[in-house]
Design a protein around this nucleic acid. Structure first.
Length: 239
DNA sequence: GCATTAACACAGA
DNA sequence: TCTGTGTTAATGC
């Protein structure tokens, strides 16, 4: 799995470069948790491509009268890039997952024009998209191969390492996601998330409230995962 | 036995 | 009052 890690490193190193420059003239729009950012089908006539600059965005779809989390995005990631190539819009809704989420957007046609005229930008966008695809594949693999408790812990480790702030020996994730959202990402029920997090809290491995989550002992948290090369020995990707 | 879901209670903003 | 969390019981696989 080394190539994935290499992609990840290169992408994070390039976050300040071509893609960021492309969006820097667009105004930053901010959203609170739960606020809709765009609807892919509604904006089909004049679509935009979005770049997440702060917080988290989820892409959800309605199937069988239930909302499903299709994917979620963090700083430096592109959303709705399909629109630049006239792909038919799915019935998806993008919504802010964090207390303060910020995005910039540019018309899909301008995005297309820019990447077709700049090879280094094209290369960076391709890497960004390859990264998104790897992330979805890995999430799918985890849903099919890990038990529910392990999926929650696996997500917790990845999410903490990618968005947490290290304070001494601890990691602080702030603002914390709701149990509902962790469940949607890990593919488990809300109550199961509550149960697992409470177990970890009783063991002193984590601490949490509505506003933040602290991983007190990352090593102990890692030991909670089954001893498989696919999830513990490999350093996790950023999410 | 494991996991999900509904239902209800409670706390805090 | 609303949202998020804690808990239990019922249900399905």
């Amino acid at each position: 799995m080394m190539p994935l890690d290499m992609i990840r490193q290169e992408t994070s190193a390039e976050r300040r470069s071509a893609i960021t420059s492309l969006f820097e003239n667009a105004a930053e729009e901010t959203f609170r948790r739960g606020e809709p950012i765009f609807s892919a089908s509604a904006s089909q006539s004049f679509p935009y491509v979005y770049l997440v600059s702060k917080g988290m965005v989820k892409l959800i779809s309605l199937r069988d009268d239930k909302f499903h989390l299709e994917d979620y995005f963090q700083r430096g990631e592109l959303i709705n890039y399909h629109a630049a190539f006239n792909w038919p819009a799915k019935n998806q809704l993008a919504e802010s997952m964090a207390h303060f989420t910020a995005v910039r957007r540019i018309p899909a046609a301008s995005f297309r024009e820019a990447i077709l005229g700049d090879f280094s930008l094209f290369e960076e966008v391709s890497r960004n998209l390859a990264n998104a695809q790897c992330r979805i594949q890995e999430r799918l693999f985890r849903v099919s191969s890990l038990k529910t408790h392990h999926r929650i812990i696996d997500f917790l480790i990845r999410h903490t390492l990618s968005t947490g702030r290290r304070v001494g020996f601890e990691h602080v994730v702030r603002p914390s996601l709701t149990h509902q959202e962790i469940g949607a990402i890990a593919g488990v029920g809300r109550q199961t998330v509550t149960t697992v997090l409470n177990e970890l809290r009783r063991e002193g491995i984590i601490h949490f409230n509505r506003h933040y989550l602290i991983v007190r002992d990352m090593d102990k948290l890692r030991l909670k995962m089954p001893p498989s090369p696919s999830n513990t020995e490999r350093p996790p990707l950023s999410r």
